[in-house]
Design a protein around this nucleic acid. Sequence first.
DNA 1: GCAACAATTGAGACAGTGTGTCAACAACAC
DNA 2: GTGTTGTTGACACACTGTCTCAATTGTTGC
Lengths: 142, 142
Amino acid sequence: MAELLAGHGYRITGPRRAVIDAVVGRARPFTAEQIVAELKRVAPELGRATVYRTLEILASVDVLSRFLRADGHPAYIVGVPGHRHHLVCSDCGTVVAFTRCPVDDLVRDLSRDTDFAIQGHLLEVFGVCPECRDEPPAIAPS
Amino acid sequence: MAELLAGHGYRITGPRRAVIDAVVGRARPFTAEQIVAELKRVAPELGRATVYRTLEILASVDVLSRFLRADGHPAYIVGVPGHRHHLVCSDCGTVVAFTRCPVDDLVRDLSRDTDFAIQGHLLEVFGVCPECRDEPPAIAPS
DNA sequence: GCAACAATTGAGACAGTGTGTCAACAACAC
DNA sequence: GTGTTGTTGACACACTGTCTCAATTGTTGC
């Protein structure tokens, strides 16, 4: 991952390694602030801005991808570069990426009907994953 | 619009009227902060929290609908209740709502393939409207 | 019209998620 | 080892809200 940064002309620094270490191997999505909090424990001198900047860089080189959670807050997940969308579990945060994009046809039609020059779109699907669905809720419904 | 509020058991108050006045008749989307700024001029005593609360109430009774702009920030637009999506001009902010939702098929397939219990989705399309496209940019490209 | 009640308000503190600045530092090329 | 320049950490600031709480106001019943 570090080499990938170097390949893009970014320097390999201690703080960046720390962020990469904190991020690599995560299957679940995470927010920038989660990484900040975690690194505060192992490397208290590491600044908040550095974490934000590094995550941004990692996303820009497609090591991470950024997406919106159900509450509208941004989060990151390792991998899944390219044109993908996400199916996000509202309960545990598990993300399933999918490449099938049903918007293409729609975009063509919208473009024709409205004469807009379509630039992009945002599609996120929210639901509850099988694990969370099977688990009984912490507080039993009355 | 005020009667609609009353119909839902909300009181018709001065501040709420002011917010409704500021909002009604707008064809373009607006952010809560825009309304706050505008009302600051005509009714400086009106609080920020009140504007946020009132917009939220108006959205809850389907007088407004809330959506995300291209930059991820929330905005409101008058009307368009129900299941709609938005095509947003990244330049002037014009919104075109559309009801056609290509996600239904996808949701069914995703649900089958991933075993998620799909709850909802977020779809916004971004582009440049014909007016903005025809206008020469303020700073000529070099 | 008036009083009582409860909803609503305004002010301001606080939170989450970033961005911008700037002097000090450190990675890298030589 | 040195010089250059990208990077860092600290911190201020911005935006978009949410929350609290005493004061105010709309509404209802008389």
